[in-house]
Amino acid sequence: MPQQAKAPPTQPFRADAFAPSDDTTLRWLGMAGFLINSRGTTMMIDPLLRGFDMPIMIEMPVTAADVPHLDAVLVTHSDNDHYSVPTCRDLAGVTDAYHSTQYVAGLMTDQGLPAHGHDIGDQFDVGAVRVEVTPADHAWQNESPGAATRIFRTEDACGFWITTPDGTIWAPGDSRLIEEHHLRMPAPDALLFDFSDSEWHFGLAGAARMANAYPGTPLLLHHWGSVDAPDFPPFNGDPQTLHALIENPQRIQVLAPGEPYRLQRSPSAG
């Protein structure tokens, strides 16, 4: 059995992580999820805090019951490690709005959630934070017979470009590499980095190309170390493989779930 890389021990957090502050802090939630607190504006991206259908190797750093308030939940696509219906429903009482693609927002509305659907390229504000919906290519269901009862469109999945008072964050979502997009954006101040070697993700080589297109950008690793799936490429990435593949490997951020990361403007950011 192949060895599975595991995330560092979880650093739990509670209500103080959601309080007003003088900066922008990110916390990896495990899986593909993040909490962003930008000077008191709070949002989660792809939170999965319970109810996943595969064995989990980590302790989640926060429970929905310990979340005092979220200005928004952003969801990149409908896979259940990104759109966790149990988690989104658990957070409904403290969340002002849910944002995703038109398709996923329809699913959320069916669950009674206050959802807003967006087209690729749309922009919207969450407090003082501006969010732009970016392209993704993750319609894997169309090549997996029996995976769905509908034809998935490219615009059913997305990423998010997030502009805060303290810098930019790019959450590209799950996607195959789109060269004209993923390699040609302005340099973000933090890249939420999926490096899984899966054909419906960037692939390890594609992830390295993307990292090297922005050689000064910190890489906040996710989509690894959380699921006990050593033979399943979307979940079995190992941060050690990155050091020989990317420029400036010291920018690799192997965060523990719940560990705070303070956003800082990069000199190379555009």
Rank of each mutant, 00 (worst) to 15 (best):
Q4R: 10
Q11E: 13
R14G: 12
A19P: 08
D22K: 10
L35W: 04
M44E: 06
P47G: 04
L48C: 15
F52G: 02
P55L: 10
P61H: 04
A64R: 09
D66C: 08
D71Q: 02
D71E: 12
V75P: 09
V75K: 00
H77K: 04
S84K: 00
A92S: 11
T95M: 04
D96M: 02
H116K: 10
I120R: 14
G121L: 01
V126H: 01
G127N: 06
V131A: 05
D137V: 08
A139D: 11
G146E: 07
A147N: 04
R150L: 08
C158K: 00
C158T: 06
T163W: 01
D174G: 07
S175H: 00
S175F: 03
L177S: 03
L183Y: 15
L191W: 07
G206Y: 03
A207Q: 02
A208P: 02
R209V: 02
M210V: 05
M210A: 04
Y214G: 08
Y214E: 09
W224N: 05
W224Y: 11
S226L: 05
A229L: 10
T241Q: 15
L242A: 12
L242Y: 09
E247T: 15
N248H: 13
Q250P: 00
V254I: 08
R265M: 15
R265L: 15
S268Q: 07
G270L: 12
